[in-house]
Design a protein around this nucleic acid. Structure first.
Lengths: 111, 111
DNA sequence: GAAAGTACTATGCATAGCCAAGTACTGGAT
DNA sequence: ATCCAGTACTTGGCTATGCATAGTACTTTC
């Protein structure tokens, strides 16, 4: 039972939420997502991100298009589908409920 | 890809945090924990809670004692060990970092 | 052409929550 | 005394996701 492991478990589900939020702001490709997540101290590795993007795409929440890059290989730019937008709305509510539940438990006085 | 599934994933790791918080307030047994979690809209089932308590006990974060009940079978009352208290402090910081990271990503303006 | 940098793919493992089926104990009803 | 319902706890298998690792592919630079 170590802290790092619990951190990994805590990230499950939350990464999906963060990724959808990033993409909701406008089309973006994987490496930029990684950079932004890292900048926000949300640890994630490629082996996680790419399969996640694939899952979301296969579930109809994302679409992508290939764009030639000016400085390297082509990139896959992702955007949310309408279904993806609705899903993110549901996820946003879920997350806020979860944070609220946790706060209630943390601050509950002895009863 | 459905919302319920992502909710389940989001709960991973967070339940541990909530349980430790509940126990940190003073000795408590499993059914009372379940009641409190349910009251806080934190969904959890027995098949999750009991193995979690066992894991935490085996990791040295919890101790328990059997107490005769006035209205049924005996109960296992849990308390935090000193190590458990330290672990919870680390977990608290982790959780708050995670919430903060998520908030950053959610509110970041287009850059 | 080779090397380095960038972008993406695939796979197997570890982990924890869920589901379901059970065991065990106690008090109350018959 | 026995049975049943309620309460408390145990166990094992399944599922899904993040991580680690090892690649493939494309482009630019030397």
């Amino acid at each position: 039972m170590n802290l790092e492991n619990t951190q990994v478990q805590m990230r499950k589900g939350i990464l999906e939420y963060c990724i959808l939020h990033i993409i909701a702001r406008g089309e973006v490709y994987a490496s930029d997502m990684l950079d932004e997540l890292t900048a926000a101290k949300m640890i994630v590795v490629e082996g996680t991100l790419y399969p996640l993007l694939t899952r979301l795409k296969n579930a109809g929440l994302l679409e992508y298009k290939w764009v030639e890059s000016k400085s390297g290989p082509p990139r896959k730019y992702y955007t949310l589908t309408e279904e993806g937008t609705k899903f993110l709305n549901g996820l946003t509510e879920t997350w806020e409920d979860l944070v609220h539940s946790t706060q209630m438990i943390k601050t509950k006085s002895t009863s």
